[in-house]
Nucleic acid binder design. Sequence first.
DNA 1: CGGACTATGTAACAATTATCACGGAAAGCC
DNA 2: GGCTTTCCGTGATAATTGTTACATAGTCCG
Lengths: 213, 213
Amino acid sequence: MNISLNYLQETFKGQFEYALLDDLAKVGQQKIVPTGAYLIRPGEFIRSVPIIIRGSVKILRPDQEGREALLYYLGGLDACAMSLTCCLGSRRSEITAVAEEETELIAIPVDKVDEWLCRYSTWKQFVFQTYQKRFDNLLTTIDEVTFHKLDERLLTYLQKKVQSCQCRELTITHEEIANELATSREVISRLLKQLEKMNKLKLQRGKIEMVGA
Amino acid sequence: MNISLNYLQETFKGQFEYALLDDLAKVGQQKIVPTGAYLIRPGEFIRSVPIIIRGSVKILRPDQEGREALLYYLGGLDACAMSLTCCLGSRRSEITAVAEEETELIAIPVDKVDEWLCRYSTWKQFVFQTYQKRFDNLLTTIDEVTFHKLDERLLTYLQKKVQSCQCRELTITHEEIANELATSREVISRLLKQLEKMNKLKLQRGKIEMVGA
DNA sequence: CGGACTATGTAACAATTATCACGGAAAGCC
DNA sequence: GGCTTTCCGTGATAATTGTTACATAGTCCG
């Protein structure tokens, strides 16, 4: 679906110059993907760079045994750096991207991504800012895994999820959490119970309600 | 120190166009840093992007308690993506970079890094390739930490070190390894002993000789 | 040679995480 | 309601990693 210029102006107010918005409206494809939809899987080629307008997308890193560790979330006006490198280097994806909720995005064709780099300084800025953010995300992820214990990691995991969903009540199973933290369901269940006793959260079947800040 | 055009031509044969080499020779500062020298520390600003010509540089990620986990190594013709993002966003460094051996590099002033992006397509390629490589490095690091046990990590750590040093006999203490894998010296000593019994390596004071492929 | 310092070995124990083996509770479905 | 499936709780036990506490051995240097 094509996009209206007005809509883009509102969305990217102040961030992109007019001519760029104009181009964006011409070549950008608007897509709305439902919760749970896969935007990309490992091994696939990427033919366009998505910019998230609304909703959120989680980026997972798979290993050989079917586990998929969470790397980070993409939210409003984020773009995926992986897709950038993949596009500009025409390589296959090494990650999985899944819509956490209904997500609206604009897909930019590869060749435009490159072309605009030199034409629009705001686009160049955007691209490099994207790289910067993703680098930060990965570094933070590494910090978590290398320096923190599982109970802390679980807590920040849940907190990030709350942020990304804008909602204290998370609909998620212990199994799924375990997968994204690359551990086992039993361990997560135990730690969750522990956190519940500490009044950090409340457990229900398939749901976790976060308490306090 | 300034650099001779001839030298650059040899070094970047086929990778950079002539005019770019010419510019590189004009504004690039050649530096030779000794083993153990810090190229950058967390919190510092970066005023130039280094391209490694010879030698190797390790990139470490510090936490609050003084530990510094190894992220990856930079080697011949690598550039640091962190420095790129730092430069282009004028942010402080979030990592430490240390010369593993005597290392020769060319420092490119920030403004040129940006300017050349649109002027020289080979430079643009180089910059994006750099981002891509660093992303890969970080993903590999994350794989290690999330999916592998310490003994495996130790082994690949040593193997990478062999690669980076081009030498089977590593001059390193258990303490240092422990630091870079974010664990304690005793644990490393134990695992090393274990690996020695499996004939994967031979231990001497301050040295580790890797055996086999 | 005699400290002083650094690096390593190692036992013993604690904490954390992983696995196995269930049982039971909730939800979905005829 | 009864059956099935999914999700969760939990004990028992193992494996891995972290900590404490020393002992020993090499190196440096006077």
